[in-house]
Computed example of a mutant assay.
Amino acid sequence: MDTDDVLRLIQEVAAEVVTPRFGHLTDDEVGEKGPGDLVTAADREAEARIGEALRRAYPSALVLGEEAVADDAGLLDAFRTADHAFTLDPVDGTRNFVHGSPDHAVMVAELRAGEVVRSWIWQPQHEAAYVAERGAGAWRDGERLQRPPVAADLHGVTGRRSWVGRALGTLRALELTWVCCGVDYPKLVEGAADYAVFGSTKPWDHAPGSLLLTEAGGAVGHFDGTAYRPQQDPPFGLVAAADAEVLALVQGLAGALPLPRR
């Protein structure tokens, strides 16, 4: 499948099984994978349909879907050693989706030999398509993206609510993100914030946006200074930044943030 084919796939599936349920979910279409971790019929159906199409097009590739991992955590072990793989987040920002926020997305990333080589983010309610290809750039609706210069007073955001209001060194206090990686990364690319700090590093959340950001001139790495690699079993804590200089600055300060234990 070429890049446009994959984008059309996720747009069509979103139009058929995600968007019709937005604002119309019934009680029996919403459940929990764990305490407070929501899943909907839209998540499950979209993952099944997109995953089936990817497996049909790429029989030897591993498809790592968020909902499949919830049922079989062993898939993560297979993913870490796969030479060719896709990550799939059928409804990123499920809580937003359930509560009527337009800030949700369908996301796919393709990895070869451990590197993200293509990624797709479709925001159905915003009708915005973000596509990136390693070495070829990042795009929104066919328009080339370039991360704008950073603000003099760096603006940092986080999706971890316990970190909101904390200041890293002399930087201004962290504000809440859009609580959806499929919106957070595009917002970083477009200049709505200069950096974001995340606690969780799940590959289906960060693989698509990390390529979009780096292809637009940004940088991504862990709190401990190591590079982001979706197939590694990394330490908690991830920084996504406007450029390499901001990344290094924030990495040197983010270690003060309290991280969950494994």
Rank of each mutant, 00 (worst) to 15 (best):
P59L: 10
A196F: 01
V69K: 10
L76H: 09
V30N: 11
R134E: 11
D243S: 04
L54A: 05
A219D: 06
S162A: 11
Q123I: 00
T81E: 13
R261Y: 11
R21T: 14
E245M: 08
F223M: 10
A14V: 09
H99Q: 08
P260Y: 01
H222M: 09
A216D: 10
V106E: 07
D224S: 05
Y195A: 01
N96P: 10
Y130D: 03
D233E: 14
A227N: 07
D4M: 12
Q125A: 14
I50L: 04
L75I: 09
T3G: 12
L253F: 09
A82Y: 07
V108C: 00
L211T: 10
L174S: 00
V183A: 14
R147G: 00
Q125T: 02
G209M: 04
V30I: 15
Y195E: 05
G114Q: 03
D89G: 08
R55V: 08
Q11Y: 08
Q125S: 13
A128N: 13
T170G: 09
L171S: 01
T158R: 00
W163L: 02
H84S: 15
A109L: 06
A227S: 15
E45P: 09
V116S: 02
D224N: 10
R161F: 07
A136G: 05
G114T: 07
A57I: 11
E32Q: 15
G225I: 03
A129W: 03
V197E: 00
L25S: 07
E143Y: 09
D71G: 13
L62R: 05
S101P: 04
G114E: 05
L62H: 06
V17M: 13
A132C: 08
A242K: 01
V189I: 08
L154A: 05
L171K: 03
A242Q: 07
P230E: 02
P234R: 01
G31T: 12
L171N: 06
P90W: 04
A68G: 08
D2W: 11
N96E: 07
F86E: 11
L176A: 15
Q125C: 12
A207W: 11
A73K: 14
P20L: 09
H24A: 15
L176W: 04
P90V: 02
W120R: 01
F22A: 12
D243P: 02
P230Q: 06
A15K: 11
R144P: 10
S210A: 15
H84G: 10
V63I: 13
V246P: 01
W120Y: 12
D27Y: 09
V189P: 02
V189G: 02
S101K: 08
G237Y: 02
P230N: 07
H126I: 00
